[in-house]
Simulated assay, not measured.
Amino acid sequence: MAADLHSQPGPAPDLALRHRLGLLASHLVVALVALVGIGGATRVMEAGLACPDWPLCYGRLLPGRQMNLQVFLEWFHRLDAFVVGVALLVLTGASILWRRRLPAWLPWIAGAALLLVAVQGGLGALTVTQLLAAPLVTAHLTTALVLVALTSALYQRLAMAGRGLAVPPLWWGLLASTALVLVLAQCLLGGSMASQWAADQCFSSGEGCRWLLAHRQVAMPAALAVLALAASTPLLPAGLGQLPALALGSAALVVAQVALGVLTLRLQLEAPLVTIAHQLTAALLVGLLAAVVARCLGRRSARSLLTSEVPSEVVHG
């Protein structure tokens, strides 16, 4: 029995390597979603300038006597960004070092994500030195959401290796891509509105209401696109794995996002936790839709589907 166990062939080296890098990418997605949530908390609690210098905080890696809730939020936000940068550096380095055993697209996508992190760090520094200038704050949030989408898609492509999954129809993939673009546009409007405190000005003095109106107008087609994506899942062929569940999860997040948006306005931004949850849900929605789009890419031939010899258990460990 022992001899038989030792004689059994193990998983293909490239799939095992993809699994490890996919695990790293999945942790990156979580860290980036958390980064967006912490960034939202930093803005809502007006802690963006709690650390007056950059990259240190009061000239130290860990501020001591100055530590309070606002300083902690800004400090932890920077710490999370640093961890993300190191993890992406490892992912990019590994994808280049073992590029012969990995998909050709991986070093390019990982490198693009690493470049975006560098841009994100630069924007973070400028938001402090330029005293939270609205365009910089908006660009900072937008870059973070693009990173969430990119790493989520990267993880999905790595996780799909060797599983022999079917591919949805082209029209459904286009619908998923449209939903993702609309949600990202909605997030961009929301970020612009938040960075200028337009909602607060609208409630207090009647100024800046055009941003609030634009945010609400784009919310409708974005929500309808995601709901249509979920409603059309019964029309999809079998063998798509978790793809229908991801689409249904996106619809649930849209419903929660709309409810949180309405509640935020009814409370006139007086409930910080609701406002933070609104931004966190947006990041989760972007990540989930990017996962759907990634699973729609890369058509495989029928022959490769039939001759796949690696079981799905390899991917799941």
Rank of each mutant, 00 (worst) to 15 (best):
M193V: 00
S192I: 01
L188M: 06
L5W: 14
V86N: 10
L280D: 10
L136H: 09
L147T: 11
V226M: 05
D80H: 00
A25F: 11
A199E: 05
R78M: 05
L106F: 01
V255C: 08
L213E: 09
C51G: 10
L260K: 01
A139Q: 09
A247Y: 12
P237F: 08
P9C: 11
G39E: 14
A166P: 04
M160N: 08
T127E: 05
G317D: 15
A198M: 03
L260W: 00
T92D: 02
L5F: 14
A161H: 07
P103M: 11
L49F: 06
P135H: 14
Q201P: 03
A223W: 09
A214W: 01
A231E: 02
H27S: 14
G40E: 13
G298S: 08
G249L: 13
L23W: 09
M67D: 09
L236G: 05
L288P: 01
V148T: 12
P272R: 07
P221S: 06
T264E: 06
I38G: 06
C209Q: 04
L79M: 14
C202R: 01
R266A: 04
L91W: 06
L246Q: 13
V226Y: 10
T233C: 12
L131F: 11
A166V: 07
W105V: 10
Q279L: 15
P63C: 07
L273G: 04
A214P: 07
L248W: 14
L32H: 00
G261R: 02
C51E: 08
R60L: 13
L89I: 01
V71D: 11
A238T: 04
E74Y: 06
R216W: 02
S195V: 01
L243A: 10
P13D: 13
L188A: 14
A251R: 08
Q8Y: 13
A118Y: 03
L145R: 00
W98V: 00
L132W: 01
W172T: 00
A47P: 02
Y155D: 01
L305F: 03
S308Y: 02
L17E: 05
Q186R: 08
L35T: 04
L89H: 02
A245K: 09
L175T: 11
T178P: 01
H140D: 10
H278D: 00
L141S: 00
P221G: 07
P237W: 05
Q70P: 05
L297C: 06
